[in-house]
């Protein structure tokens, strides 16, 4: 059990996708923070986070989303999430995070929501 990777791609309709995989903890969270910071610096505020490859998240990982959500929403954007394994969703759910973030089973559903 090791490693963490984050990649950023452009999707349709001006949505940027951050894909995370591996273990997101206090050690690896700064890498995700950097990816968010780069997008926000470029004025990219429609951000989809693809959790498909993520095996683990701690509160340090949750903190990254909390650190950017206000700025993103105040610029008419959003952070939406998709493809989360049940064990990851359970951590979000334990703290009530699904009331703040829209979480979709599939990427296509999230992209559709961005178009609305």
């Amino acid at each position: 059990m090791s490693g963490f990777a984050v990649t950023t791609n452009s999707c349709e309709d001006g949505v940027s996708k951050i894909s995370v995989s591996g273990y997101l903890d206090a050690h690896t969270a700064p890498e995700l923070e950097k990816a968010f910071q780069t997008l926000v610096n470029d004025g990219e505020y429609k951000i989809l986070v693809d959790f498909e490859g993520l095996d683990y998240i701690s509160s340090a990982g949750l903190g990254v989303f909390m650190g950017f959500i206000e700025e993103v929403r105040s610029n008419s954007g959003d952070i939406k999430m998709c493809s989360m394994a049940t064990k990851i969703y359970k951590v979000f759910d334990l703290l009530g995070f699904p009331s703040l973030y829209e979480i979709f089973d599939e990427e296509v559903q999230a992209l559709e929501k961005f178009r609305e």
């Binding site: 903190g63 909390m66 959500i69």
Partner: peptide, 17 residues
């Protein structure tokens, strides 16, 4: 947590978890 999420706070969740 209701207030926490509404005010976009960061950190301080470790002990609660």
């Amino acid at each position: 947590m209701d207030k926490y999420l509404k005010s976009y706070k960061v950190g301080g969740l470790g002990m609660l978890l």
